[in-house]
Simulated scan of single mutants.
Amino acid sequence: MPTAKSDPTTSSTDFTAAIGRMRAIATQSADHLLLGDGPPHPDAALLDICAEIGHQRRVADAAAQRWREADRAARFRKTEADRTTKDACDKDYTATGQKYAHLLRAAAKLKATTAAGIYAKAIAVRSSKTGAAYLATSMADDLIACEELRQTLWATNEGDAA
């Protein structure tokens, strides 16, 4: 599937730029809240969780790779050290997968009220290997509830849609 090379936030596999932007918005929002120098972003918590989901996906993928390598070594060399390493990698892989799943459930519980929040959920769904059905359902609910989107789609006059 071709992707737009000019905009890294549209790539179907690399969301690094988008994750960095979500994290920056969440951090700036927290600063506004602490300093009282501006309103926080309405979806700051969701953006922060979705940025962490993107990061945790990479951590989980790395843990899976380490587990595969340790499993291969344990099967072929069959030494106690290789089995011990494989067991440690298995625990790490399981723990990272559980943390990732927990973050997906946490994001699904938060309602996206802005386009940035809906986009953040879409990136989290897209980065999930399973499709994160509960997060996808939550995102669909947010899209349906988004008044601005409905106004854009169902403009009363043809010239009203932007």
Rank of each mutant, 00 (worst) to 15 (best):
D7F: 05
A132M: 06
P2Q: 05
R126A: 08
I49T: 15
A26E: 01
H41V: 05
A101V: 02
T79Q: 08
R77F: 04
A115M: 10
A133N: 05
A73T: 12
E52H: 13
T27I: 11
Y134G: 07
K121A: 11
C89Y: 02
R105S: 15
P40H: 00
A17E: 12
V59Q: 02
D71Q: 03
R68T: 11
S127W: 12
Y93T: 03
S6Y: 15
F76A: 12
A106W: 14
K109H: 12
P8I: 02
T85Y: 04
G117E: 04
A73R: 13
T130G: 08
A30F: 03
K91C: 00
Y119I: 01
S6P: 14
L104G: 03
L104D: 02
I53F: 11
A124T: 12
L35M: 11
E80C: 02
A81Y: 04
A133D: 11
S11L: 08
G20L: 06
L103R: 02
H41S: 05
A120Q: 06
G20K: 08
R66N: 08
T84E: 12
T96C: 09
T3W: 05
I118E: 00
A115I: 07
T85S: 09
L46M: 09
R72N: 06
Y119C: 01
Y93I: 05
Y134A: 11
K111S: 01
T94A: 12
Y100I: 00
G38Q: 09
D71K: 06
P39W: 04
A63I: 07
S128P: 10
A64N: 15
A120H: 06
T27C: 13
D90V: 01
G38L: 14
A63R: 03
L35R: 10
D87N: 10
A74R: 06
A88V: 02
A4V: 09
K99N: 05
R126V: 07
A62W: 03
P8M: 01
T10N: 01
W67H: 09
R23Q: 15
T13E: 10
G131N: 00
L104H: 06
L33R: 13
A116H: 13
K78G: 01
A60F: 08
A120M: 02
G97H: 06
T114K: 08
Y119K: 01
K78D: 04
A60W: 05
T96A: 06
E52G: 00
G38F: 15
S6I: 13
Q56R: 08
A81R: 14
S127Q: 13
R75A: 08
T96S: 09
R75M: 12
I123F: 06
A26F: 04
L33I: 10
A101E: 07
L104W: 07
D31K: 03
L103E: 04
D7K: 00
C89G: 00
V125D: 05
G117Q: 04
L33W: 08
P39F: 04
T13L: 13
L35F: 10
T13R: 02
D43T: 05
D82M: 14
D92Y: 10
D92M: 11
A24P: 12
A95F: 15
G131E: 05
A115N: 14
A73M: 10
C50S: 06
A45R: 14
A64W: 15
D7N: 10
A133I: 07
R23Y: 11
S6E: 11
T96V: 10
R23E: 15
T84F: 06
L35P: 11
K111L: 03
R68M: 13
K99Q: 08
Q98H: 10
E80I: 10
H41A: 00
D92H: 14
